[in-house]
């Protein structure tokens, strides 16, 4: 590493004459350059292109024929009933899934952070739905949710509750997807919480033990305050992920019944790829971006307080 530093700063003499503060500025810039250049080329640039496309009539199969049409895609968007349905569904999903998934993930993380031999097995098991192919997940959950022979309905019947239609019902399909998503996704957040738990000083728990605190008091007075930063982060990324819901309804319900599981990214994909309407799809993307960005910034403000 030294050689690099020397090169950049023109030899040892210079290096010696730079203060730590000056080095910080230089290297700070240098360290972030690779990431920033890559982000610019492969994310900011495409986002910019999408923004431009949103003002165009652009058939994906005929890129030469694209023409500027001003705000017409946006005008169409705000008259499109499906867009508002998708917006509502996405919000509904996010509001329910974020607290649920974060709570489950935290619970699992605390469980597998315990000093027991099964902790490692637990980590692998709880994380496994994240790595299991959506094909398998969809097949199995369709079985579980089956009206006639599903395991969940069998369990309900056992307790005297009549069978529920789940994915086949306009009223229950989204809730069924929420339940499944929590199960599938919690392992992801669990890993972040787990990394956070490893930073909680052991001494704090020892002190709490001496004070005679019970498990709940330790959780409330030691664990949670120490995880403040991490929890804020997890809430934020879970919210953003929740807004991007697409693959579950795409595979399991195709947006139905009666559009009840259509989300913003679902209609973005449908218009862009199935209907090949790049312009309209890009307009949805731009609005999506603005909505989620404002939600995240509000969330960040709230969390900072």
């Amino acid at each position: 590493m030294e050689w690099l530093l020397n090169r950049i700063q023109g030899g040892k003499a210079v290096r010696l004459s730079l203060t730590y503060g000056q080095q910080k500025k230089w290297l700070g810039f240098l360290f972030s350059v690779p990431a920033l250049v890559l982000l610019f080329t492969f994310l900011i640039l495409p986002v910019g292109l999408a923004f431009v496309y949103s003002f165009m009539e652009y058939n994906m199969l005929n890129p030469q024929g694209k023409t500027f049409t001003g705000l017409s895609n946006y005008a169409r968007l705000f008259q499109d009933a499906i867009f508002f349905t998708a917006l509502k569904n996405t919000l509904y999903f996010s509001v329910l899934v974020v607290p649920l998934q974060c709570a489950v993930a935290l619970g699992l993380a605390i469980l597998v952070n315990k000093k027991v031999k099964t902790a490692v097995i637990g980590r692998v098991f709880f994380f496994s739905p994240v790595v299991t192919s959506m094909v398998v997940v969809a097949i199995l959950w369709t079985f579980l949710y089956n009206v006639d022979s599903g395991l969940i309905n069998s369990a309900l019947n056992f307790f005297g509750i009549p069978s529920q239609p789940f994915l086949l019902s306009e009223g229950q399909a989204m809730n069924s997807i929420i339940f499944m998503s929590v199960w599938q996704g919690a392992g992801f957040q669990m890993m972040i919480f787990l990394a956070g738990l490893k930073d909680v000083p052991e001494t704090l728990y020892e002190a709490a033990d001496i004070d005679g605190a019970n498990a709940w008091q330790k959780f409330w007075n030691v664990t949670l305050p120490s995880l403040k930063n991490v929890t804020g982060f997890v809430l934020m990324i879970t919210t953003i992920q929740a807004f991007r819901l697409f693959i579950q309804p795409y595979v399991m319900t195709n947006g139905g019944p009666s559009d009840s599981t259509k989300t913003l990214v679902f209609i973005l994909y449908e218009n862009g790829f199935q209907f090949r309407d790049v312009g309209y799809s890009s307009a949805i993307a731009v609005v999506f971006f603005l909505v989620v960005l404002s939600v995240s910034l509000i969330l960040k403000k709230v969390l900072n307080q």
Binding site: L39, F42, V265, F273, A285, S296, K300
Partner: peptide, 23 residues
Amino acid sequence: ILVVIIALYVVPFESVLIPLYVV
């Protein structure tokens, strides 16, 4: 830059697929 990076996480990949392909 920090704010920009948070904003970038918001972008769904499906929406930049075609522009990214162009790049």
